[in-house]
Design a protein around this nucleic acid. Sequence first.
DNA 1: AATTGCGGGGATT
DNA 2: AATCCCCGCAATT
Length: 225
Amino acid sequence: MVVLEAPTESKMAPPHHFDWDINDTNIPKVSEFDPFVEWTDGHCRFVYPVEQEEAKRHSSGWAMRNTNNHNVNILKKSCLGVLMCSLRCTLDGGAKVHLRPAICDKARKKQQGRPCPNKSCSGRLEVMQCRGHCGYPVTHFWRHTEHAIFFQAKGVHDHPRPEAKSTAEARRSLTGRGLTSTLPGQTSHRSLHPRPLHHHHNPRISGNKRPFLLLSLPRPLGRVF
DNA sequence: AATTGCGGGGATT
DNA sequence: AATCCCCGCAATT
């Protein structure tokens, strides 16, 4: 990484391939922005407009939690992995169970040990941790300037994607009604689910986002000067 | 009740 | 000093 750190001559670099790192003291201005990428993976960087709502929220398809890096200018988040069935069962539709870990520690602890949502499975939910960045969770970095929101990711996720945030929220509002507590060692099967809740994977999302079309961007290009 | 960001503080290298 | 983690707090949704 690096470049353009020349203490004296920081202004001038070749107009082309202007490189930047989230930690640079001088971050370049950009004239073009990237479309928001929900499922970033690998070492990548994007620049979003300050009006971009997802970017403003520092959101991601991956379940990311804030981690303190003691730097007020750069927000750091690390991946929480994915909630899986301990028996790795397969749902009727052929899909696997990979739910979204709650960001809140307390809520996530409650998720673990709950019965697998597959009613014909006796497994329990457990967190598969992310170790995609040198044995540590994948990290995301966010940095705001007057003109743009800079994003940088480090590491390659070594686990399946969790369900999308919108899907997790939808289920939460369905399932979280009334009595909540179901303890791991308990017999209270709260399979009150009116309908099978597999199809997490594309019922509604097609309307407002196209998850796959934008993923084929080979890399960020043509946006910097 | 869960999300998000902040920040103190501990452990390690 | 840097990096990583855990925890509690507060504002927000």
